[in-house]
């Protein structure tokens, strides 16, 4: 069978490359019986649309941010607990744990998709136009976020004015002051040169930004047991490979940002004060897996 796999990242992006490597290996391992056509750069629609296509079976597979899935399965919001992971290596270990994998079990019933395993994008950082010396300086700032609940609650707890904004609008908005700060990862700050219009880069690592490999539950149900095993295993392997890429590259990207001549600060969870506790209160109810995930994270440190 020829499978269709959709994602939002452009062709040169790590996720897209992993998707193509998955396709190549699947076609080799199955002796040409299966193949994968990759549809990058949201050719088949944004993540919400792709998830809906997975549900109807129009799309077979996708690599997708956990943020999108957490809009339907709030328990997945647990991954966005501030300082669940201290850095990208810790985040990778958490995403590879049985606890994390166990959280995928309900996806077929609750979202109509089978989750095979996790990958990642980088950790979240804060880039600001003005000086930020304490968390109090973030209060009242117009701060660009990707629109999903866990991150909204985090910045609300800090007293910032979180402003949802699609990625393409961010550069201009930062350049001309429509937003005072942005929530971003070091890869995109480098690639899209957001630092050109900012003064302060807070390497805060306050949140991880996981990805998940998905197969349509409808399509999955129609596969033979042998195919189910082979496909899930291979997809999990290639999704997982993105973790290695980010572990290797994130220090390079961070290092490059120390050389752009802007105020560069490393901060940890103490910097954010009681905002983290506030977040925890809100999400304790919404995400039942949160305590167990925290415990796993502590064990893995």
């Amino acid at each position: 069978k020829e499978f269709r796999l959709g994602l939002i990242t452009p062709p040169p992006h790590t996720w897209t490359k992993a998707a193509e490597a998955f396709g190549a290996e699947l076609s080799e391992k199955s002796g040409g019986a299966h193949s994968v056509s990759v549809f990058p750069a949201r050719q088949l629609g944004n993540e919400a649309q792709m998830l809906q296509q997975l549900q109807t079976g129009a799309l077979d597979m996708a690599f997708m941010t956990v943020a999108e899935v957490s809009n339907r399965v709030p328990n997945m919001g647990a991954f966005y607990a501030p300082y669940l992971a201290k850095d990208i290596n810790h985040a990778s270990a958490i995403l590879r744990s049985d606890t994390a994998r166990g959280m995928l079990a309900v996806l077929p019933q609750e979202a109509g998709v089978v989750g095979v395993g996790y990958g990642s994008a980088g950790m979240r950082q804060i880039l600001s136009r003005g000086a930020v010396n304490s968390a109090a300086d973030l209060s009242g700032l117009k701060l660009r976020i990707t629109p999903f609940d866990p991150i909204l609650d985090f910045y609300n707890a800090l007293g910032a004015a979180p402003t949802p904004m699609p990625l393409p609008a961010v550069y201009d908005a930062l350049a001309n002051g429509q937003v005072d700060a942005i929530d971003m990862d070091v890869e995109l700050i480098n690639v899209l040169k957001y630092h050109e219009h900012a003064d302060t880069l807070l390497i805060s690592n306050h949140m991880m930004f996981p990805m998940v490999g998905l197969i349509s539950a409808r399509v999955y149900a129609g596969l033979s047991d042998a195919d189910k095993a082979m496909i899930s295993e291979l997809m999990a392997k290639h999704v997982d490979s993105t973790l290695d890429v980010y572990m290797a590259k994130e220090p390079e990207w961070t290092d490059a940002l120390t050389k752009v001549g802007k105020t560069f600060k490393r901060v940890d969870q103490d910097f954010f004060g009681d905002a983290i506790a506030q977040w925890e209160t809100i999400w304790a109810d919404k995400a039942p897996s949160l305590p167990e995930l925290r415990k796993t994270a502590a064990d893995l440190q």
């Binding site: 549900q55 339907r72 109509g112 539950a217």
Partner: peptide, 12 residues
């Protein structure tokens, strides 16, 4: 039915 349209949320 594997039809999830009644569970689909809006973003904001």
């Amino acid at each position: 039915t594997f039809n999830f349209i009644y569970a689909e949320p809006t973003n904001t």
